[in-house]
């Protein structure tokens, strides 16, 4: 319990610090790198939660593919710092109030209503392994899995069509 708690606390602090770093960095490249660190800590959480397959796909899909795409687009569009908006002066205070309301709601649900009770059991070797996930994906969840491939195809075609230069 205590060792688990220490690991959890250190990782949770790292996750929250990197998320805040992502939010507060002026430079978009720093934000992207903070987000990569955040995805890394979340991947370690997945290992603690008996989900090794999800942890590996988190590293390869999120920290690898998605963030490399982000960095490419940041390099493409330039990293100039945008001026603070004058259009909606009340937006920033309102955003903080709404975020506080959201945080308050989750505190109410978790600590007063006790919406999430239960324990994380000790890791079992078979639970969440690539074999188990693969068996479930290709038997019970075959149709959603195939629809996912169509979704990815549509996204790929869409990205190519949208960024294509218009022919004169």
């Amino acid at each position: 319990m205590t060792a688990d708690l220490i690991v959890f606390s250190v990782l949770a602090l790292a996750a929250i610090a990197t998320a805040l770093g992502m939010l507060l960095s002026k430079n978009a490249v720093y934000s992207a790198l903070f987000l990569v660190l955040n995805f890394g800590t979340v991947a370690i959480f997945y290992i603690l939660l008996n989900a090794p397959f999800i942890a590996m796909s988190q590293i390869s899909v999120y920290a690898g593919a998605i963030m490399v795409l982000f960095l490419f687009v940041i390099m493409l569009l330039g990293t100039d710092v945008l001026p603070v908006s004058k259009a909606l002066p009340w937006q920033r205070p309102l955003a903080f109030i709404l975020a506080l309301v959201l945080a308050g709601e989750s505190v109410y649900l978790l600590f007063i209503r006790k919406a999430a009770s239960g324990e994380i059991p000790q890791p079992v070797e078979t639970f969440g392994s690539p074999k188990e996930i693969g068996l479930a994906l290709f038997s019970q969840y075959l149709l959603p899995f195939e629809i996912t491939s169509i979704l990815l195809l549509v996204a790929m075609v869409g990205a190519i069509v949208l960024t294509q230069k218009e022919k004169k």
Binding site: L110, E119, Q122
Partner: peptide, 9 residues
């Protein structure tokens, strides 16, 4: 054994 609430929080 960690409470699941920590992760959800």
């Amino acid at each position: 054994m960690m409470p699941v609430m920590f992760y959800v929080a």
